[in-house]
Amino acid sequence: MSCTKEKTNYLEETSREIPEVFDFQEASSMLVDRYRISIEALNGTFYTGYNELRVRITDTQTGETINPDSIQFIPISKIADGVVTSCPHLFQLQKSTQNAYWEGYSIFIDEQLPNPTWKLYVNLVVGQQNYTATSDITTKEQLNKNLNKTLFRGNDSLDYMIALVSPRNPQVGTNPIIAGIFKRITTTHLAEFVPLSPSYYQYVAVNDHTLELDPRMPEPSMGNHSSPNNVNLSQRNDGFYEGVVNYTMTGNWTLNFILKDARNTIVKGNAVSTAFTPGVQGVKGELHIDILF
């Protein structure tokens, strides 16, 4: 029997705000000697924020995929003549479990750059030989708000960054949440750029911190609504932080955070009001990321 009003298509409803994601496709390629380096990203596009990357190396003479001994990777952006910066990334790429490709990531930050173009540096070690290649890339704005990020200055006067990695497509219910937390380190070598030097990491992973989580709906009519049973984010072996976020319904959510170091000192963030205030927009914490699904 057909109904007067159609039932909501739940799958469509929960992916409405999420840009369509296709497979990994080549986003950039470079040639060095006989090797072709192919860097794959989702949709074949580099986005601001977190990008999972897959790197494949082909021997152009044989046409076969090869596995080098190691691969180093660094994205560099030029700030001014002779002044460059990088962004959080995985320097030593890792072999995927099936050896099909090499895995890495890059979290592009374009907000603070006058000229947000990037140069990717890749170095292959095959035998005892180093092969270094570069390519220029551009990034697109990430429209999926679930991969938002925030850059902030901590109470220790250091610059930090929190970038959401997952869930890319949240569901009403319980979602594991993964974020990368990095801090910017100052280097004295900015003027004399040496490719692939660890001095240019600039952002290093923050270790042994805790990211306390308080998700709330900012919409005034939701009166600062929150969800129960969330779990604060703590560091995993791969350096990223993982916790649990519960979303009670679709819509706009604000993830209010408090970043604490290993000694439980607050690096940034404050506890937000837990009062239910219908009609009044919930006050966001000083450290927060907005998401939408």
């Binding site: 909501t8 739940y10 409803e13 929960t14 409405r16 705000e17 009403v172 709906m217 919409e219 005034p220 009519s221 939701m222 009670t248 319904m249 679709t250 819509g251 706009n252 939408l292």
Partner: peptide, 14 residues
């Protein structure tokens, strides 16, 4: 649930 600013995302739950 419809937000006060109707251009904003509606909120859905079962």
């Amino acid at each position: 649930m419809y937000p006060q600013d109707r251009s904003e995302r509606t909120m859905f739950a079962y």
